[in-house]
Simulated scan of single mutants.
Amino acid sequence: MIVARLPKGARVIIYGAGGRGRLLELTLEDRRPDVTVLGYSDTFKRGRYGSSPIFPPEELSGDFDYLIVASAYADKIITDLPEAVLPKVLSYDPVTPPFDPKGIAEGSIAIASTRSSQAMLMNFFNLSMFGPKTQFSVVHLDPVWTLSLWNAHLQGLVAEGRVRHHEAATPDEFEGVYLPEYGNEHVLRFFNSTPLAAVPLCNAGLRSRLRNTMLGLRGRFSRLSVVEFGSICTVTGGNFSTLAIAEMLSSGDSFVTVNLDAGSIQSVQSVCREHSLVDYYCGTSGGFIEERLAGMGTIHFACLLHQPCSEASVASEFEVIERHIPKGGRVLFAHTNRHAALPALEQLLAEKEFETLYRDNAGWMLERQ
């Protein structure tokens, strides 16, 4: 998140003489050769790390632009750093969801934080992350307003009113919200219980895109009917496409996920066990179309994730499904890139007035005009 936004020619020190710090150094060498790494700092290590010197934390001077903490213990490290260097501190976490402002050139973005988000917040306060006409507000999600674990720099910003409790914020204030702990089930569950859940996410990735799609469709249709062929997931199960959709269902909605075998169904059921509105169909997509599609009526969102859209069968299935998709409804293809779709599918989408919303190597989202 921070590598691309570092100022040109920045001089940095990496805090964390270990694997994550080395990964950051290699990333900077590859993507930002204009940035100079002056060396490392570390809580325990001294001497050199590779060919780079290790500066003791207590001896850090101001002769650098940024101190980038690259450690799984970033929150604790930042709390213990000398107060004088805190305005120059950033954090590097390759696991944090990428920030995607979604073209918000003007307006306000909420950064939804918790007690364990202080390292990430340093990036927003100490580095220019937005254009000149975009503002951001930090909205604290902790049910208990306890910030005693935060460092002095952030506590000063709280005193200035730059960090607010979520109960003091309304969704109408924001065009987007960034949730850095989107993969944390407990944080996500609490976030979804707040009014901020009605604001589109500024997180990159399939799961947040699906969530935002469901939010947009919810604003157009009184009830939603969704069908999904195949479930995209990570090894941890944290990014199941099925879960992202299920989280946004309301009473009266219908959602059928179609998976080929019992093992796949069992995996999805395990992840979506708290969402009773999910209907599971075990079998082929062709079998579902033959047996169940007619009974679904209108389909507001169709996710064809089971095969690459270069396969002729995907075009054939879409030709049947599109008859159920109304104006304003959407379709998502997966396993795609800018050159993978069959010409027949491209032509059919154009004829049926589907317009591309986004298209990358992971997915292709279209809306019926």
Rank of each mutant, 00 (worst) to 15 (best):
E367P: 08
M248D: 06
T27Q: 12
Y92R: 10
Q135I: 04
G183Q: 11
G39N: 07
K8P: 07
V226H: 01
K8E: 05
G9S: 00
K102F: 11
Y15L: 14
F124H: 00
G18S: 14
E353T: 15
L60G: 12
S254G: 09
S222A: 14
L23C: 04
N123E: 03
A315V: 06
E25F: 10
S148N: 15
K352E: 15
T114K: 02
R273N: 03
F221H: 12
L366E: 07
A168M: 12
S61H: 02
H306Q: 01
V95Y: 06
N123W: 03
G103D: 04
S225A: 14
S285R: 01
L121D: 01
R359P: 02
F44N: 15
R164K: 15
E185C: 07
F240L: 14
M214Y: 14
S148I: 13
P97N: 00
R220T: 12
G161R: 09
Q155M: 10
A315I: 13
E175R: 13
N259I: 08
W150P: 14
I325R: 08
D253A: 05
P98N: 09
H324Y: 05
L179A: 07
E175V: 03
L243Y: 06
L201V: 03
T234G: 12
R273S: 11
R162K: 15
R20M: 15
Q155H: 10
P87K: 13
